[in-house]
């Protein structure tokens, strides 16, 4: 069953068509990769799905495992997060001056309810919610392996840990689908390996499906069950890693055409 189904998604910036009628599907519990050369429109695609941009055409349908299916194109980002899609960013966007724990606590925001009144009077309900929140957030940090940084400011973390914190924060929103935008960018091989383990573990334990953009082909080949390839805004190939690897169109997009041939 597809948890995410994108039909003919199109995004125009003035006269430039950044995403051109792209179709994509993510099934429940699947890890899917979206690859393509720089400027192919992958991140724009992500931004359309998560509501940062309003797509100019096409549909984005979601079917949460324990909810009713609906169309979400053009819905505001915070509402999409509330519906169960969580993302990370290509260039890390942590809340730099907040502590690691607080970053994760922000992720839980949309699942909680206390308002201004609760904040000022700090009634029993608010106190309990806060206590539960701290507990839950700490558990998430433990799961990701960041618990030793708990009170550290996010900006003081090593680079690889910052990337992991972004995932922890996304996970805190209780998603059924994680959208990871180049999670391994700038990581060393050791960090990449532990990232692969983490993503596999999350799918295993949390039951989340994953859609990821990545340039690190070794990671893509190990992790993903299916791969979509984009170039110049169009989807040029799709299939299993083995199929995509051999696809002449993909090779051409990445390496360019052979002049002599």
């Amino acid at each position: 069953m597809a948890v995410l189904e994108v039909n003919d998604l199109t995004m125009d910036f003035g006269g430039l068509r950044a995403v051109d009628r792209v179709n994509l599907e993510v099934n429940d519990g699947e890890i899917v990769a979206l690859i393509g050369p720089n400027g192919a429109g992958k991140t724009t695609f992500f931004n359309c799905v998560t509501g940062v941009y309003k797509p100019t055409g096409g549909q984005v349908k979601i079917a949460p495992p324990n909810g009713s299916p609906e169309e979400i194109q053009g819905v505001q980002p915070h509402k999409i997060t509330h519906k169960g899609l969580a993302r990370t960013f290509q260039n890390i966007r942590l809340f730099q001056n907040m502590t690691v724990l607080e970053n994760v606590m922000i992720g839980r925001h949309s699942r909680l309810h206390s308002g201004i009144g609760g904040a000022i009077f700090r009634g029993k309900k608010t106190r309990e919610e806060e206590k539960q929140l701290i507990f839950d957030s700490y558990q998430i940090l433990k799961k990701i392996g960041l618990e030793k940084w708990v009170n550290e400011q996010a900006k003081n973390l090593p680079y690889g840990e910052q990337r992991r914190l972004e995932i922890a924060r996304a996970l805190a929103t209780d998603p059924f689908l994680l959208l990871l935008d180049e999670p391994a960018a700038g990581m060393n091989p050791h960090e990449t390996t532990s990232l692969v383990d983490l993503i596999l573990k999350l799918r295993e334990e949390e039951g989340v499906s994953v859609l990821l953009i990545e340039h690190d082909m070794s990671l893509v080949m190990i992790l993903s069950e299916r791969i979509y390839v984009m170039d110049y805004g169009k989807r040029i190939a799709a299939g299993t890693p083995a199929q995509v690897k051999k696809d002449p169109v993909v090779i051409k997009a990445y390496l360019g055409e052979d002049i002599d041939a």
């Binding site: 940062v52 509330h82 809340f95 607080e102 925001h109 949309s110 699942r111 206390s114 000022i120 919610e129």
Partner: peptide, 26 residues
């Protein structure tokens, strides 16, 4: 009271990064 509450944290997150803040469901 506000500073370390759910609303206060959301406000600080908005100060830190508005786009990430939206994407975290705020």
């Amino acid at each position: 009271r506000l500073k370390d509450s759910r609303i206060g944290r959301a406000l600080i997150a908005m100060r830190e990064d508005e786009i990430a803040c939206q994407s975290m469901g705020i």
